[in-house]
């Protein structure tokens, strides 16, 4: 490698850094992850206690539990917070460990898509049981 290679690499380094720009939308992701984390502290504790009380439950018991507006609201909040937090967290892990740009983009799209799909499935199931 000669000197001119080195110079061009340093120039492109600055150029690429400029092209990437400031975090901007990245801050919203960081903040959303914290907001959902704070929400998930009480929601998770509530969910663990709910699971324990539903250990040997029948389908009717689960429907009866979700028939309470409070339980249904908390369950929907848990679903939204969980899958949102999960999508951001898995995205962070992928961004750190998956290096090829194409694979990274594909993995991020799969994670986003699955998170939304699973969240919708859970929410619809909870609504069908509770309403």
């Amino acid at each position: 490698m000669n000197t001119s290679d080195q110079v061009s690499i340093r120039r492109s380094m600055l150029g690429r850094a400029r092209g990437r720009g400031a975090a901007r939308a990245g801050f919203a992701l960081w903040w959303t992850q914290r907001v959902t984390a704070v929400a998930l502290v009480p929601l998770t504790l509530w969910f663990i206690s709910a699971i324990i009380s539903l250990e040997s439950a029948s389908r009717a018991d689960v429907a009866g539990w979700l028939h309470s507006p409070l339980a249904l609201a908390l369950m929907l909040a848990l679903i939204v917070a969980t899958f949102w937090h999960m999508a951001i967290g898995l995205g962070e892990v992928i961004a750190d460990y998956v290096h090829g740009e194409g694979t990274k983009l594909a993995a991020l799209l799969v994670v986003r898509g699955l998170s939304v799909l699973l969240a919708l499935l859970c929410a619809i199931a909870a609504l069908r049981l509770g309403l």
Binding site: R59, V62, L118, L121, C122, I124, A125, A126, R128, L129
Partner: peptide, 11 residues
Amino acid sequence: TWWLLAAASGT
């Protein structure tokens, strides 16, 4: 998800 979907789909 499996648990909720199963509960929603039937006994």
